[in-house]
Design a protein around this nucleic acid. Structure first.
Lengths: 229, 229
DNA sequence: TTGCAATTCAAACAGTTGTATGAAACTATC
DNA sequence: GATAGTTTCATACAACTGTTTGAATTGCAA
């Protein structure tokens, strides 16, 4: 047993390769090659490839949420238990955006891995991911504290949209950069974060269709009546 | 040559299976089984699996964008060449959300396939997808017509965020449903569309961090200074 | 040192994948 | 109806995957 050196080397190598190349492009032989261990070590220490991925995901998601929740707690403590909604959103999306859009360092591998996990959704991860959402509940509660008058359903949609914008920005940054011909500066990480935070805060405070006075709607191309008319 | 019956059967079967199960879970043997043709027919008619996927994606993305652009044109014609920003966003995200969240019919397969293509990003598709963005330019121009005073960069971000919210809603609907304990009704497709449209319109009209007066920001957990301070 | 369990290793295994082959069946033209 | 070109078919192939095996090596306690 000793120090589980081999186990840790496998986990770290897998995290690095999955973060860089995604799950579908990385084989066990790639991982053990990167880790400098024997192929059979994976099944010896983890039982199977899926169990390796599951353990990797669990440990990394715990670490990620610890950072997010620490940032949330700091923001709430600074505000006497109630943080501005922007600060809550920032704690939710900031660490991931910084880790994925900022310069690649040792500390950013985990953010890039988690994004891969949320994008590719390989079976052993999907199960855990759809079951374990306690950190989202924590953030939803914090948002309710920030916006005590908001309806619950609006909170959930706002939280969902905040994650959506952050993830898609990471995922499709190349296309956004090409479309805008460089006008959308993804290198300005903190600027990107404020964009996402601002848009999410707007959706949370004024984004309910019922509370938002939309201009008269034009007919759709297919003339379909909409449910809210 | 005759009627290319086999070719079409392969394309349709591939579209259906990829839409339902994703790219990584569907093999050529699954496709030819569903199509009722011989395995070798794929390489005979398309050259390789990747070329089949590429052709499938090209034809389907053209069809999808034809629908979106027709809806956009109808909205602009109804407004004398300038549609409300909500209508532009609705034309962009409505067809996809209806196709993916609404009841599964023959006509919705294409929307579900396109979402898979945008989610899984398999190599032959990624190349095309990152190069061919003319439909996004069309929508960006329409948005500029709707909001002549908006800065270009805000338009691009708003367009990007609109797609982000729509895609993530399709992709992560299960988790949103669980988090909200059913409060976010994803069966009310038109209601979901209005949520996305409203949030995107808000981001487009008031979402620039410089134009949005955010409350004072709380310190982050790690005390990192932000670039915009 | 001796003995025993834990760990590592090279090699093989079984299954699946996309692709290639060559014969058979079909189609249309003369 | 014979023939040439196209399309279909069963089958084989080569490469790659995760997993298993059994022998070698290591580490540690007696």
């Amino acid at each position: 047993m000793a120090t589980d050196r081999t186990r840790t080397a496998i986990l770290n190598a897998a995290e690095r390769l999955y973060a860089e190349r995604g799950f579908s492009d990385v084989t066990l032989r790639d991982i053990v090659g990167e880790a400098g261990v024997n192929l059979a070590a994976v099944n010896y220490h983890f039982g199977s490839k899926d169990e390796l991925i599951a353990e990797l995901y669990v440990t990394r998601s715990i670490a990620t949420n610890r950072i997010r929740l620490a940032e949330l707690k700091a923001a709430e403590d600074a505000g006497g238990g109630r943080a501005p909604i922007e600060a809550v959103v920032r704690a939710l999306v900031g660490p991931t955006l910084r880790g994925c859009l900022g310069p690649a360092t040792e500390n950013t591998t985990i953010a890039r891995f988690m994004i891969r996990a949320s994008i590719e959704s390989v079976p052993p991860i999907r199960k855990i991911r759809n079951r374990e959402i306690s950190h989202l509940r924590r953030f939803a509660q914090a948002m309710k504290r920030s916006l005590p008058d908001a309806a619950d359903v609006d909170i959930y949609w706002g939280l969902h949209f905040a994650l959506a914008m952050a993830h898609q920005t990471i995922r499709d940054s190349e296309r956004l950069n090409k479309l805008s011909e460089g006008a959308c500066d993804l290198g300005d990480v903190e600027g990107v974060i404020e964009r996402v935070v601002t848009a999410a805060a707007l959706a949370l405070t004024a984004g309910s269709p019922s509370s938002y006075k939309a201009p008269a709607r034009a007919a759709t191309a297919r003339g379909r009546p909409t449910a809210r008319d």
